[in-house]
């Protein structure tokens, strides 16, 4: 479980997150939704210490991450997997080396055990025979799957994904969403995903928070999201023609 309390972050004069508080449950897919520029990525990066915060608290299973020193944070980070928006694969390394990095750095596994774990994770995301390829040899969807495989290679307790299906076609996006759902339930991970894709929300979202201009405007479940009275959330959801028609047909 991850708890954030009164999280506040600004860049110079610009306030990006304002008193953001919520709880992300374990074994569930927790979504942060909002328009581009609403502060979703800043929220995730602030939770992970990639951005320093102005004030507030971030608790990973009651351990206050925001007051920890670098050494303590490093230990927590070994329990976290992160899928970045662009994949962030190391482009000078092969896929096998990309997945091996955290294992070589922090596990006591020997070479063959590392290779077994790498192959297991690649297999888990349905990738075969890609070990010796470089990230540039793969399609966007495959790169995202490698990024997910790398994120789970150390058996994380927490998984963060920053717009995992941005730039992907709807079919591949669905595959990525399903994969994240399976992994979350299978390993009982606390998964936090940033997205503005309503298909993802309806497909995999267990708990959802909607933020606008750095403020939490709504929190609930996907079953409630279609019937909310929140004007900003309605504007966000029903901006697409498909969802407008869907609402019409429901009503």
């Amino acid at each position: 479980m991850i708890e954030i309390k009164e999280l506040r972050k600004s860049f110079g004069e610009k306030l990006v997150l304002e008193s953001l508080s919520t709880t992300f449950s374990s074994g569930k897919i927790n979504l942060i939704i909002g328009r581009s520029g609403s502060g979703k990525t800043v929220a995730i990066k602030s939770m992970l210490g990639l951005h320093s915060i102005d004030s507030g608290g971030i608790y990973f299973d009651n351990r206050n991450f925001s007051v920890m020193n670098d050494k303590e944070r490093k230990e927590i980070r070994k329990e976290i997997g992160m899928v970045f928006q662009g994949g962030a694969l190391f482009d000078s390394m092969t896929i096998e080396e990309n997945l091996s990095v955290p294992l070589i750095m922090f596990s006591k596994k020997n070479k063959s055990e590392i290779l077994d774990r790498v192959n297991f994770c690649l297999d888990r995301v349905n990738l075969v025979n890609v070990n010796k390829l470089f990230p540039s040899d793969l399609s966007g969807g495959m790169q995202k799957r490698v990024a997910i495989a790398r994120a789970i290679v150390l058996n994380p307790k927490y998984l963060f994904c920053d717009e995992p299906n941005s730039g992907l076609d709807p079919y591949t996006a669905t595959i990525i969403d399903e994969l994240l759902k399976e992994i979350t339930y299978e390993y009982n991970i606390t998964t936090v995903i940033n997205t503005h894709d309503m298909n993802s929300v309806m497909q995999i979202g267990d708990q959802i928070i909607f933020i606008k201009e750095g403020k939490k405007m709504w929190e609930g479940h996907k079953e409630e999201i279609m019937n909310t009275n929140n004007k900003y959330l309605n504007d966000f959801i029903f901006s697409s023609e498909i969802f407008k028609r869907l609402k019409k047909s429901i009503s």
Partner: peptide, 11 residues
């Protein structure tokens, strides 16, 4: 390209 952030996230 966030590769440095990825390293940091690995601890």
């Amino acid at each position: 390209t966030e590769q440095i952030d990825a390293l940091e996230m690995m601890g």
